[in-house]
Simulated assay, not measured.
Amino acid sequence: MLNQRQFQHTISPQLLSLGILGILGLLYAPLLLHWLDGWLNKNISTEHEYFSHGIIGLPFAAYISWKNRKLWQRLPNRIHPLGAVFLLVGGIFYLSGISEWVNLSFPTILTGLCLWFKGILGLKLQRFPLLLVFLATPTLVPYLIAPYTFPLQSFIAGTAGFILNQFGMAVTVDEINIYVGGRIVEVAPYCAGLKMLFTTLYVGLMLLYWTGALSSRHKTISFLSIAVLISVSGNIIRNTLLTYFHGTGQEAAFHWLHDSWGGDMFSAVMLVLLIPILNKINSYFSEPAVIEQERANGQ
């Protein structure tokens, strides 16, 4: 009888966890598959396509949570009142049927579950996976930011025009419009590099966590600042190439870089560049610490 009770006591939390995962799967599997299909086939809205970094971010968040499962089990079961609030708000969002709210219900429900079962300690343990999920959740943030990107659009247009002028091309720039070869190229709000900037910062956070550099404020600020510069510079180069292709009548090359896999390849190369940069930053900030340690040992 005692063994039976011990077995029931042991299996109950496991069954509860499986039950919760099953319910979450039934509720959100269609939504996540919709996101994935839209990101891969680019048949989702322009604003929601900005969050395609979730293709790698959401599996990575799941991996981190799985890796922390033993630490999660060791935490005391402690209900925090905010858990009920998040679960209620998440449920209202989901039942509203409004696309943006349904999307936001996913990280809201996950946050509520952490607080409901493990309290603040559980939320702290899962804070980075939750951050990755939240930052990969499609919202209208790009649409809200777009009206304020005019200075960036003008800067990109002016710089692209300046570069092409140095190569002997007759280019005229009027605010966000570039005139070359009797054709016009507009640096539209969605061509200002916001998508690449979002992806660069997101992947940068993942790399910082993976290497353990996220715990260092100096490393984090330095790396993300350089990542922003790389993203902006890369977008200037891309817009310069697009203007050149369009102005010289190379429409196939223009569409390859603008609409096809050429743009994806260009973005991938930029993201790969982040790895050696982070390694350099880690080495730069680690060397003084090593020198100090060697001096201390020598003394």
Rank of each mutant, 00 (worst) to 15 (best):
H9N: 12
E49I: 08
I79C: 05
E287F: 15
G112T: 10
G182M: 05
I156P: 02
G247L: 01
N239I: 07
Q73K: 14
I20H: 07
F128E: 12
F254I: 07
G181F: 06
G263P: 05
L140G: 01
H9D: 12
I92Y: 14
S45Y: 03
D259I: 09
L229W: 02
A296D: 13
Y28W: 14
V173C: 03
F106S: 03
I291N: 02
A157G: 00
G247T: 01
G19D: 08
L40P: 04
S216R: 11
S45W: 08
I20R: 12
I281T: 03
V290C: 02
P147A: 04
I20N: 12
F60P: 00
T159H: 10
L115E: 00
H246N: 12
I237F: 15
Y28P: 11
E292N: 05
Y50N: 11
S233M: 09
P59I: 09
I145G: 11
L21S: 12
I236M: 01
P59L: 09
I184N: 02
L131T: 12
I20Y: 05
P30D: 12
R69N: 01
I109C: 01
S283R: 07
T199G: 01
M206R: 02
A252S: 09
Y179L: 13
G234M: 03
L214K: 03
E100A: 03
G19P: 04
L31G: 02
Y50A: 11
T10Y: 14
S283N: 12
S222G: 07
I55Y: 08
A253W: 11
P151W: 06
T46I: 14
N235P: 05
T149H: 00
F167H: 11
K280P: 00
C114A: 15
L140N: 07
G22R: 06
G193D: 00
P13H: 00
P189W: 02
I20Q: 13
F167R: 01
R69D: 04
T139M: 08
K124T: 10
S45A: 12
L201Q: 10
L115N: 05
L132M: 13
E186S: 01
Y50T: 11
F51I: 10
M1H: 08
F93H: 00
Y143S: 10
I98C: 04
L205P: 02
S222V: 07
L36R: 15
K124I: 09
V185Y: 02
P107N: 12
I178L: 11
N177T: 15
L164H: 09
Y28G: 05
N297E: 14
L15W: 01
S154G: 06
H218T: 14
V185S: 13
H48Q: 09
G182Q: 14
L140K: 10
